[in-house]
Design a protein around this nucleic acid. Structure first.
Length: 737
DNA sequence: AGCACGCCGACT
DNA sequence: GTCGGCGTGCTC
């Protein structure tokens, strides 16, 4: 009887052997149900063999072989094995984590095929202007289909009665069902201008010379190649993606587009859908309902979906005809998973492209230092977009307002207040960026030194004035604001520092007639609120917008002509060596929100360090100068990208147990006497969170290979150390500290 | 991870 | 005398 080696969702690095009857057709990559102890588990067939090293009597037969969906393709299994090895995470857990939850449960999955509609020649010949005006829904459907084929799910959104009306149009012979996965006819080599065929993907915009050069460079690459597309905000990176995607679709290959957080940018999906209306596009992200996620995943696997747009988890989508990968905002930290399989979707994508022999494009206005370094050593190909592609758009004027020279009014400098006033008079919008939600970050007694510390964390309780509560942003702990100091009973407690709520109140008091909107996690808690707010902003119903980084990511507010940045200095001299890199990217991004329409934008940054190289570079729009500063710093300190790192993290209820474990781990690491640098055990950035103490230990090495060898020797030792009451994990290429 | 077995404290 | 604490150990 054949032996199947199964990957199971267990924290173990071993595969488990099972027998299967000779006549049961089962292949590698197929899902199976197997008995495991008392339970029945779902696993994935990893290998098929004739014998096992185990005594025959101990091997159980598989319970069931699932064939509701096709087996996982070899390429995906290979990618998962790489991830398991590289991130030192159990294979079975890696494999199962990559599947949509539906496929992880034994419940059968029914695969639905997308139903596509398109115009018949008769329908295409219709003159919509002459179409009866009263048949609103039919008109809308026809207008939509005139821009290309569309999926039923998209059409039904046009109206509640779209179903019936579509049937009516079908009966009239104007509309017909079309196959969803029509491969596009190959077109003659690009470069000779756009063709206006039936498949010309509506509205292909003309490219400027730089964009064209970038597109040509990628198209000229027939094998693996990693391209770093560095383009300032508004330089038209998206347009480059569009052209590359178009060319890829013409070649009949699938495209994977990874974005940081799709939930924050739903309009991006609409944009791509509209532009590539002829082909099936699916999205993959955690915001999807499980059913939809599984369906989209299966459409990717079947090849029906030609474009997959998704967040980091989409890097594990099965894509049999994958021919191009795009990673937008490649510097963004959300590509790194921070628990479980701690992978970097950007890095996994690069590995995948390499393995598959296809080009990959990493796009950013502020590339990560790692990618930039690779581009300068020639490992990646640098493609630069230096001009604003959008007609008559100008770069914003960025300037610093030095603090400690002028008195502040509740955190606002007179200059910033004057600038706000001016926009109000001109009827233009302003945006204030303050990366701190709540009213004040801490409450303090004016008499003794009591501050509102969280009883469960190392952090402070944040004052939320509206509901008169103190909240911990780390563990969720909340309590009423005390009336007197809990320590000395003094009645005066003072809010220290400024959060978005306080800023909102200040602005309201200072500009009583202005329409002010606060955007942060608290104000957008309810489903759809953020969407409604965006519409308010777009329709000019808001004068002053203020909020946290939610405002910085991906949204364009064309009428904003002033961006004020309130408290950025924390990122300048942080314990995390990547904080200033992140700050620059963040500020460049908010700055890009200003003046994207034909109005010039102004960015004012309130800082106590106006001469800091970060601000100098930012004001000069000089990312390259900034990277030089950073690279010099990192080289000097011996930090990435000049070394590779692994971080051991441990946490537990008992502080002493955590540190004993970590010190033992450190001793073991030193004892291995390998050519890696082992640092000391230090508390995590937040040393205590929800009553758990957290510590970490950094190990680094200039090259990957010795570091991986070290981990392979170290990991088994860690597993033998006493670790009762604590959890630990290895983080390869860690981001946050 | 579960879920066993396995030895020591307070209960009908 | 038993119920149950969670400390090791195994699961193909």
């Amino acid at each position: 009887m054949p032996i199947l080696r199964i990957a199971l969702d267990l924290p173990l690095f071993t595969l488990f052997d099972y027998t299967v009857a000779d006549d049961v057709p089962v292949v590698v990559g197929q899902r199976v149900i197997v008995p495991f102890g008392k339970r029945q588990l779902l696993g994935v067939v990893w290998e098929r063999g004739a014998e096992s090293s185990l005594a025959a009597g101990r091997i159980k037969p598989v319970t069931a072989v699932l064939d509701d969906v096709p087996p996982l393709p070899a390429e995906l299994l290979n990618l998962l094995r790489f991830c398991s090895d590289y991130y030192h995470f159990p294979l079975g857990q890696t494999v199962l984590a990559a599947l949509p939850a539906r496929l992880r449960s034994g419940q059968a999955v029914v695969q639905k095929t997308a139903v596509f509609y398109g115009l018949t020649p008769l329908g295409a010949g219709l003159n919509l202007a002459e179409f009866p005006a009263r048949k609103m829904v039919q008109r809308r459907i026809l207008a939509r289909l005139a821009t290309g084929g569309a999926e039923w799910s998209a059409l039904k959104k046009l109206s509640a009665t779209a179903g019936g009306q579509l049937k009516a149009l079908e009966k009239l012979g104007y509309v017909t069902r079309v196959a969803g996965c029509t491969p596009l006819p190959p077109s003659p080599a690009c470069g000779g201008g756009e063709q206006n065929t039936a498949h010309s993907f509506a509205s292909a915009h003309a490219l400027n010379a730089e964009q064209q050069t970038a597109v040509d460079a990628v198209l000229a690459c027939p094998r693996y190649g990693c391209f770093l597309l560095h383009g300032i905000t508004g330089s038209g990176k998206t347009e480059v993606y569009m052209h590359l995607m178009q060319a890829a679709l013409r070649r009949g290959v699938q495209v994977l587009l990874l974005v940081p957080e799709i939930n924050l940018t739903p309009q991006l999906e609409q944009y791509f859908r509209r532009r590539f209306a002829e082909v099936e596009l699916v999205s993959l992200h955690s915001g999807l309902a499980e059913g939809a996620r599984a369906q989209n995943w299966l459409h990717a696997q079947s090849g029906a979906a030609r474009i997959v747009l998704g967040t980091r988890l989409a890097v594990f989508a099965p894509l049999p005809q994958l021919g191009l990968i795009l990673v937008d905002e490649e510097h963004d930290g959300s590509f790194k998973q921070q628990d479980g399989l701690r992978y970097s979707a950007r890095d996994v994508a690069i590995f995948r492209a390499n393995w598959r022999g296809i080009p990959i494009v990493l796009g950013s206005a502020t590339p990560s230092l790692e990618s930039w370094q690779h581009a300068s050593t020639g490992r990646y190909h640098l493609l630069s977009l230096t001009q604003r592609a959008v007609a008559h758009a100008r770069l914003p004027n960025i300037g610093c307002i030095p603090l400690n020279q002028t008195p502040l009014y509740e955190g606002l400098s007179p200059l910033l207040i004057a600038a706000l006033e001016q926009r109000l008079q001109r009827g233009e919008q302003s945006l204030l960026f303050l990366n701190r939600r709540g009213y004040a970050p801490v409450l303090m007694c004016t008499e003794c030194s009591w501050v509102s510390g969280c009883p469960h964390c190392a952090g402070k309780l944040v004052l939320h004035q509206k509901d008169r509560r103190l909240r911990c942003h780390h563990c969720g702990q909340q309590q009423r604001v005390p009336l007197v100091c809990p320590s000395c009973q003094h009645p005066e407690l003072r809010p220290i520092g400024i959060g978005t709520q306080r800023l909102e109140a200040t602005l309201q008091a200072r500009f009583p007639t202005a329409r002010i909107l606060r955007v942060d996690r608290d104000s957008t808690r309810n489903q759809g609120t953020w969407h409604a707010m965006r519409q308010q902003i777009e329709q000019g119903e808001v004068d002053i917008l203020l909020g946290t980084q939610m405002l910085a990511k991906g949204h364009d507010f064309p009428n904003v002509t002033l961006v004020g940045v309130l408290n950025p200095d924390g990122g300048l001299y942080s314990a995390d060596f990547r904080a200033s890199e992140k700050l620059f990217a963040q500020l460049a991004q908010v700055a890009g929100r200003a003046g994207r329409a034909d109005k010039a934008g102004e960015v004012l940054i309130q800082t106590a360090f106006p001469d800091h190289p970060l601000f100098r570079a930012l004001c000069a729009h000089d990312y390259v100068a900034w990277t030089k500063v950073l690279l010099a710093e990192r080289a000097q300190a011996g930090f990435p990208p000049f070394v590779h790192q692994v971080l051991l993290r441990a946490e537990g209820l008992q502080e002493s147990a955590v540190y004993e474990f970590m010190h033992a781990a450190r001793t073991a690491a030193r004892g291995l006497n390998m050519s890696v640098e082992v640092y000391g055990v230090i508390p995590a950035a937040l040393p205590k969170r929800a009553n758990h103490f957290m510590a970490q230990l950094l190990v680094q090495c200039p090259s990957r290979k010795p570091l991986q060898d070290f981990i392979r020797a170290w990991k088994p030792q860690l597993d033998t150390l006493p670790s009762k009451g604590l959890r630990y994990a290895l983080d390869i290429d860690p981001l946050g500290f």
